[in-house]
């Protein structure tokens, strides 16, 4: 019997999905709240579903902002630090946030 096909196109999609499941399990939001937030983020999505996880990530940021777990500014700043860390990391080595300096 074949294993199920991998439902994720990129590791970040799996991470975003799993964080959402973990936060729901931890009780940060109900699944009904999540479905409503995801629905909002999916307005205007590509008809073929190709940007589904981009919408998913947007929804996750939105619900975390609503629950005051983070702010868009905090995510922006840290995303830039991760980008700086990537630039400062030689190819082939793991990218660590500390590398951002």
């Amino acid at each position: 019997m074949n294993p199920p096909e991998n439902p994720f196109d990129a590791p970040w999609q799996a991470q975003a999905f799993a964080m959402t499941v973990a936060l729901h399990q931890a009780g940060l939001f109900t699944w009904t709240e999540w479905a409503a937030t995801l629905n909002k983020a999916l307005q205007g999505a590509a008809p073929d579903g190709s940007d589904y996880y981009t919408c998913w990530l947007r929804a996750l940021e939105a619900i975390l902002t609503e629950k005051t777990a983070t702010t868009p500014a905090e995510v922006d700043a840290l995303a830039q630090r991760w980008q700086a860390a990537a630039h400062a990391t030689p190819h082939g080595q793991p990218i660590l946030l500390e590398n951002a300096g």
């Binding site: 970040w12 964080m19 973990a22 975390l64 840290l78 995303a79 630039h87």
Partner: peptide
């Protein structure tokens, strides 16, 4: 010789860092 993260990848890493620091998620559980 330069690494560049996909913007979605960078934002996801940022979220995971924030949530892990706050004790809201555990990377092993993820």
């Amino acid at each position: 010789h330069d690494n560049h993260l996909d913007p979605m990848e960078a934002r996801t890493r940022a979220l995971e860092t924030i949530l892990t620091r706050k004790g809201l998620v555990d990377p092993a559980a993820i």
